Amino acid sequence: MSSSTSSTQPAGSDQPAARPSLTELFFAFVMVSLSGFGGALPWARRKIVDQKRWMTAEEFNEAFALAQFLPGPNVVNFSVVFGTRFGGAPGGIVTLVGLMGPPLVIVTILAWLYDSYGGADVIGRMLTGILAAAIGLMIATMIKMAKPLFARGLHWSPVIAVLAFVAIGLMHWSLPLVAIVLAPISVALAWVRP
């Protein structure tokens, strides 16, 4: 398909979205970065899966799972994986620049403002409110990302997800230990029982 065709499809359309151009990739990730206060993952999923329909929910989860196992920030890794998938090396570069460029400018300005006015009580209250909103967005995104796992009914995927949550969230085991134990089990189960 031509990269110049429109990449947004009607919500009920069974047609896959057109392949995005480099310009569309760049501006999509600029919008993700400008929307992503407290975390860009919820906005990346909304833009890519819900609005543009460039990926299905399962494809997004798979690409994000790969990004989590790479060193570095997850959403940054995801932007490069996603951009490379649709635009090769130039796609990876434009999505990375789109994701990182605007926040770099904003954070530089905010750092200067915080250095100058950070002692004010109103700043602390604002940051507390932003934190609460960011946590809510992350929980909502986790629920959306988990739906494809649980939609399959009795399947091994939710069991692995729950085991990882219990091991890390409740038992406080280290992420590398849990990954070393659960990743091979998960891959073996996927190989045997797709």
Rank of each mutant, 00 (worst) to 15 (best):
W43H: 14
W43Y: 14
V49C: 05
D50H: 06
D50N: 09
D50Q: 06
R53A: 07
R53V: 01
W54V: 13
T56N: 08
T56K: 05
A57D: 15
E58D: 08
E58Q: 12
F60E: 10
E62D: 14
A65F: 05
A65P: 03
L66P: 00
L70M: 03
V80L: 11
F82G: 03
R85G: 11
R85N: 04
A89P: 01
G91N: 06
G91V: 01
G92E: 04
T95R: 10
L99R: 02
M100S: 11
G101P: 13
P102I: 00
L104F: 10
V105Q: 04
T108H: 09
Y114W: 01
G119N: 15
G119K: 11
G119E: 15
V122N: 06
V122I: 05
V122T: 08
I123S: 06
G129S: 00
I130V: 08
I130K: 02
L131G: 10
L131I: 08
A132W: 12
A132K: 11
A134L: 02
L137K: 03
M138D: 01
K144H: 14
M145W: 12
M145C: 11
A146S: 10
K147G: 02
L149P: 03
A151V: 00
A151M: 06
A151W: 01
A151L: 00
R152N: 06
R152C: 01
S157F: 06
S157K: 07
S157D: 05
S157V: 09
P158Y: 05
A161D: 01
A161H: 06
L163E: 02
A164D: 13
V166Q: 06
A167C: 15
